[in-house]
Design a protein around this nucleic acid. Structure first.
Lengths: 223, 223
DNA sequence: TAGATTGTTAATCGATTAACAATC
DNA sequence: TAGATTGTTAATCGATTAACAATC
């Protein structure tokens, strides 16, 4: 059996974006899309769309385009959404609760099965039908339930500790909001959310726009 | 005056990451770093570090390395953090409150100056010293205060409406958590947070790890 | 001075775009 | 069939890495 060639990370990074746009098309009741259509919506080239899908063997039909439903399914599968992902939220403060309330995840097979917090003020509260448990019960819970992903929404100073704990308990996926660098075994996947990086990207863009304006103004003056 | 050459977006995207690592060094009391040190921590090449900084003229000293404090300042300036950024939170639910409570922003000159919500249940509550106001007061507030950035944490169905409103009121930066595509004039900067894309990136990684394991297992068996 | 490490150019690598034959 | 649009290769472009002279 020949080794399938490695898909480049540039392509992978675009997949969730394709997925998102395809869901929008689906909601609009559009069942078929050409690489050209899709590329215009997403502000990329049609060549890139075809090239990207070609990496996976191609999902389209010459002279017709791509079937939206099929494409959603195929890309979903590539991204690992062909199964239910059971998730627990560790840290049931505002952020943890915000995520638990985010209904659109559930539609895509991401299911919150437990929430944990150290703070007695939160323990016992119900969020979207899930009772917040004390963190002491984490070990017991994880040995009785199948949990795929732990969402880390504790304050940063507790993050490493709880991560070590769930890793020991066998977790294989971490969605980390605690902006701490985590060290985990290489069979555990980590995705970090760095909100501050996004905020800085915003101020950079704002600065660029201000500079652009200043330049145009200067040009006009010197005329 | 010659046009300074355009910095590539690949470089820009790395700047917040450099910034983050440099802050860690600073906290550790390290005042000087070589491209080699930094590259190892960040898991990139030292060549890239030097090349990246060279884009801005170079911040280092031959035979010595880079001064951490200087570097933090320079990169901060490039990213537009050389000024206070006044921000308002629109949508004071769990997510809006979580962001308002995120203290590390404030240290970097990101200051929440107002919070707004439609829901009377939230109005009047105090979050980190800021009273949540009814959205009706947005227009009045913005004409009396200097606001740089609006953080959009309303449910997606209200997002476009409130964005149109603040754009009309002159906002120049939008940090959008509502996973809706926004259309704004081209002098308004937008940074979108798509949490679901990050979550899909995680399940993709998890799937890759599972596949890798399966392959190793197969190899072992066939021996 | 000798050693270290940047600044900077050149070489390589990979990703994007162009082009068009294949085919529905 | 004619028209449309993908699949797929080749060309181009840009980003990363290598190398080393400059210089602290």
């Amino acid at each position: 059996m020949k080794d399938e060639k490695k898909i480049s990370s540039a392509v992978i990074k675009r997949l969730p974006k394709y997925y998102r746009y395809l869901l929008i098309l689906q909601q609009m009741g559009i069942s078929r899309v050409s690489s050209n259509d899709l590329s215009k919506r997403m502000e990329i080239t049609s060549s890139q769309v075809r090239q990207d899908f070609f990496n996976f063997g191609g999902f389209g039909l010459q002279g017709y385009g791509y079937d939206v439903t099929l494409l959603v399914k195929e890309i979903g599968n590539i991204l690992g959404m062909d199964k239910i992902n059971n998730m627990i939220v560790i840290g049931a403060g505002n952020l943890g609760q915000a995520i638990a309330n985010h209904t659109s995840f559930e539609k895509r097979g991401f299911k919150i099965v437990g929430m944990f917090d150290n703070n007695p003020r939160h323990v016992g509260d119900i969020v979207r039908g899930i009772e917040i448990m004390h963190s002491d019960r984490l070990t017991e819970f994880m040995s009785n339930h199948s949990v795929d992903i732990a969402i880390i929404t504790v304050p940063r100073e507790y993050a490493r500790e709880v991560v070590d704990k769930v890793v020991k308990l066998g977790i294989k996926g971490l969605w980390n909001f605690a902006s701490v660098e985590l060290e985990v075994p290489d069979d555990v996947a980590v995705e970090n959310i760095h909100l501050s990086e996004s905020l800085m990207a915003l101020t950079y863009k704002m600065k660029e726009i201000r500079n652009r304006k200043a330049k145009v103004l200067k040009k006009t003056e010197s005329k």
